[in-house]
Design a protein around this nucleic acid. Structure first.
Lengths: 330, 330
DNA sequence: GAGGTGTCCGTGAACGTTCACGGGAGCGTT
DNA sequence: AACGCTCCCGTGAACGTTCACGGACACCTC
């Protein structure tokens, strides 16, 4: 008995019970127009046979199941995890499903992922490194929402982070505590300086301070440690430092301790992102926090709108403001 | 032009090009038996019309796409994230897709999730809190692999963690450094003590030491901080402490610092899990490490075997050994 | 010029489910 | 006795794609 393979279909169930497919369908989907007795018999038989409806056949006839692809560079990076959690939550609230793809930060992997994504989901959301033309070529018209990066063509939507005010808050906070020599650890990835650095420069200038003590850090804890060590040898006068993100800031924290600088008394540290991770280090990280959950949620929301053809959210609403979150490190 | 809705099908493409569906299908799937010229014309038309094949129709006829559900209690917990990353990687290597469900640690959410999972994936893998009978009732025969928990009935498979040797290593390490008064922070969740505590007790007894200085910590950083503070007031003689997991250990690290105990000199701390997170704290956490990636990968592998009907891996191979990972805290 | 060999293309069928419709049985009303 | 209503159930059709065939045409071979 029970040799192997060959899927159990709705017809098999119907046959063993002695009714039609439609009756089985009615029983399984809780529709009316069915006798309670037969319904029970159908349910029992279905269980007995180990019948599970084909999601393909079902999806083909009813158009209601939507699946969204979430593309992130690295699941082990807590920043992306927080965004992912927000996206998952928002999707669940709508009854949607999320397939997660980790591109490992590689452009090739990303291309390969897109190739696959196209045939598996209804819309895609996430962090991409490819140029828009390249993306468009691989996506063949599928709705896509870019996160953490501004879209250039109307082909795409994007969730943007507005941090000028938050960074301004941070600098204000530092200045009000008497800091004048404030440095920054920018990221070392791209060739041009980041927008966050521009925000920092503006905030500093508003106080009549120069923002010229800037180091570059690789996007890792070790990168932050190394970069701050370098920056402090070059600029020993610094009493505070603002970093591109929390990961780098945590590395900076470690460097400070190793150099014998007590945080926040000898050196204040302010990160960016406001990750929960910042609460596990000691002292807890002060940071320009953005609502990562909301980032993920907005992306899902917009993907849904693009999907259903309803009016998409305007650019102004696809914005997440960052605000200063004072903990212990500054 | 371009009113709305109504999906573009393969027939639409065929009609505009003036060929049959089959020819379109050939072009799109890189099959032979097609003229390069027509192939190009088909491809162009498909792009022009924004045609994307229906994954449902395609999945219905070819049985090759497999999707696996990954159920985890909390995506923000780095432990689950690491396992998830391992699962994703293993799935990608096989060309499978992973739908992630976050149950938020609630049993009700878990039931609801299962309800949905059944109709969306081919097999399910993850951390469940429900009893096996309850799970079975919701899964209607779908292959399932339990992680971090031993299966009771042959209906399920499970990935187990073998940590006796690793904990023994940890205690050996501590004893060799002169520690005699070693406490433990168990978790406060379940009613009965954990297996990890039993491992600890055995290891201690092997050295002729008693394992009676045990506190209970909630599974959070704060829980660890609180619990260690309590344990140390009750047992000030302790010079080392082993914790249920790394999260609790990190909390313990913070408590130690606040109490003026220098780690590892005044108090050695050993965690469990070996999370990457342990490297961002200072001092870096020594831990009984398990290969979280492998946990996820094994789960996927076993799910695949159950799915294809090939011989499933025996219990002995579904085992992940934990080994001592010495960093700085002990 | 009959036969053979490629190359390219089209037609029915099938995948497994739900939807729209129709119909019989039973009961009550007029 | 005819009609209507409710309750239950079944039958074709449709969803959009791929698979297994078969066939037209051109070219070459002897």
């Amino acid at each position: 008995m029970g040799t192997a393979s060959k899927r159990v279909t709705i017809n098999d169930v119907a046959r063993t019970v002695g009714v039609s497919r439609q009756t089985v369908s009615r029983a399984l989907n809780d529709k009316g127009e069915i006798d309670v007795g037969t319904k029970q018999r159908v349910l029992d038989a279905a269980r007995e046979l180990g019948y599970r409806p084909s999601r393909f056949a079902r999806g083909l006839v009813r158009q209601d199941t939507t699946t969204i692809g979430l593309v992130i560079p690295d699941l082990l990076n807590p920043f992306f995890t927080e965004v992912a959690a927000g996206a998952l939550e928002a999707a669940r609230a709508r009854g949607w499903h999320v397939i997660v793809y980790d591109t490992a930060g590689s452009a090739d992997e990303e291309r390969g992922t897109l190739e696959v994504v196209v045939s598996q989901v209804d819309a895609v959301v996430g962090y991409f490194s490819l140029a828009e033309a390249d993306l468009d070529a691989h996506l063949s018209g599928m709705p896509a929402v870019l996160i953490g990066r501004e879209h250039q063509t109307p082909r795409f939507s994007s969730i943007r982070v507005e941090g000028a005010a938050g960074v301004r808050e941070a600098v204000d906070h530092l200045v009000s505590k008497g800091h004048r020599e404030i440095g920054m650890l920018d990221h070392a990835g791209r060739s041009e300086p980041s927008i966050r650095r521009a925000w920092f420069t503006d905030a500093m200038n508003a106080h009549g301070l120069a923002a010229d003590a800037v180091g570059n850090a690789l996007q890792s804890v070790d990168g932050g440690t190394e970069a701050l060590t370098g920056l402090l040898t070059e600029h020993p006068e610094l009493t505070a430092v603002f970093t591109f993100n929390d990961i780098i800031a945590i590395g900076a924290l470690r460097a400070a301790r190793r150099l014998g600088r007590v945080v926040p008394d000898d050196l204040a540290v302010v990160g960016f992102d406001g990750l929960q991770l910042g609460t596990v280090v000691d002292p807890a990280l002060t940071s320009v926090a953005l609502d990562t959950r909301r980032v993920g949620a907005l992306a899902i929301e917009q993907a849904g709108r693009l999907l259903t053809g309803s009016t998409p959210l305007p650019s102004e609403e696809l914005l997440v403001n960052a605000v200063l979150l004072v903990r212990e490190s500054a």
